[in-house]
Amino acid sequence: MENIITLAHGSGGSATLKLIEQVFKKYFNNEILSQGDDCARLAMDGTKSLVFTTDSFVVTPVFFKGGDIGKLAVCGTVNDLSTSGAIPLYLSCGFIIEEGFSIEELEKIVESMSDTARECGVQIVTGDTKVVQKGAADKVFINTSGIGAVPDGICISGRNARVGDKIIITGTIGDHGSCILLERENMGFQAEIKSDCAPLSGLVRDMLEAASDIHVLRDPTRGGVATTLNEIALQSKVSIVIEEDKLPVKREVQGVCELLGMDPLYMANEGKLLSFVPAEKAEAVLEAVRRNKYGAEARIIGEVTGEGEPKVLLKALSGGSRIIGVLAGEQLPRIC
């Protein structure tokens, strides 16, 4: 590992995973941290358990088509809680604000957070504010932490994928990463691409009503679908096959990726879920997802094919297959 931090360490890819393993887990590791999911499940007296998660947001620009850093902060934390099957309850928020940042823009961000929290049915109950001198930060950074309650009988984890599980993606991939790329770089493309930033707790409730035994839920944010599938394969020690012709990608996103030499599989998403569902329940879950406004374009994109060596294969349109790995290097910094 490099002896300095680079932007690649924030990409959510292989450099991030190495940093976690070689630095943070070296000193912080314990039974709860080693669960390896997007939130920690905390054992409580009785039959219920709480989950806890935290996330920091440094996206630039802070306002973008489809959202802003405030909406993103609430959605990101609510969605991480929801991937455990939990009902999100409470959030905290911490602001690091650069001297000179507009109070009018700050109020827009806070209002956006309030509106999104209301949609999710969560309360923002505590927080913190720090201001740093001009040049010591970039406009505003936000940290949000969240607590949720897992209903009885729900056991969802990246460690639970099973052979035969069907893999559902709840909509088109790469929208958020493509949106941020275009708005930040001002490349002159005419494509109207909006971020998919969305709160998914209601969608998860609909899915669990269709099948309470969903094995895995994960939101494929940094590193995209490819990296997230690899993480799940590693946690569950399984092999996964996805089919290229089943992947839902907007034409505009595909076009931008082709022009810039990028792959939608590695582009960030902020309003999509990957779910691993027992084969006999897959159609019922898919139908429930498609009835929700955040899942109208959901599809089954693959399945878990075996145990043993963790790997993810992409079955190409040409009929061949290739291994898709974890994002290597830095594709696009500060996307969330």
Rank of each mutant, 00 (worst) to 15 (best):
G302V: 08
D206K: 14
S318H: 05
V249K: 03
Y266S: 09
E297T: 02
C257H: 06
P248F: 01
L217M: 15
A279I: 07
G302K: 10
V256S: 03
P278F: 15
N230I: 06
T305K: 09
T221L: 04
A279K: 13
L314F: 09
P278L: 15
A211H: 06
K272N: 13
A284G: 12
S321I: 05
V289H: 09
L317V: 13
N292V: 02
Q254Y: 12
V289R: 08
A282W: 15
G320F: 14
E307A: 05
T227R: 00
V312S: 02
I232S: 09
V289A: 08
E280C: 13
V241Y: 00
A296M: 12
V249T: 09
Y294W: 08
R222G: 12
M207L: 07
L273F: 15
P220Y: 11
I214W: 03
P264L: 09
E209D: 10
I300P: 00
G261M: 07
K293H: 12
L234A: 14
L208G: 02
Q254I: 02
P310W: 08
P310Y: 10
T305A: 10
L260M: 13
G224V: 11
K293Q: 14
L259T: 14
E209Q: 03
S236T: 11
N230P: 04
I300K: 02
R218I: 13
E244Y: 08
L234C: 04
S321V: 12
L274R: 03
D213K: 10
R299E: 13
S212A: 11
L313E: 06
E270R: 03
Y266G: 11
Y294S: 07
I214V: 10
H215C: 01
K237Y: 03
G302S: 07
P248S: 06
L259I: 14
M262I: 14
L208E: 07
R222E: 15
A298L: 09
A233P: 00
A268H: 08
K237Q: 13
K250V: 05
A296Y: 07
K311Y: 01
V285K: 03
L314V: 06
K237I: 00
T228C: 13
E231T: 04
R218W: 15
V304L: 05
E297F: 03
E303P: 00
D245M: 01
N269T: 06
V277T: 15
R290N: 07
L314S: 06
I240P: 04
D263M: 06
R291W: 10
S321H: 12
K246Y: 07
Y266E: 11
V216H: 05
T228A: 14
V289F: 05
R251V: 09
E280I: 12
T228I: 08
G271C: 07
K315W: 09
A210L: 02
G308R: 11
F276Q: 01
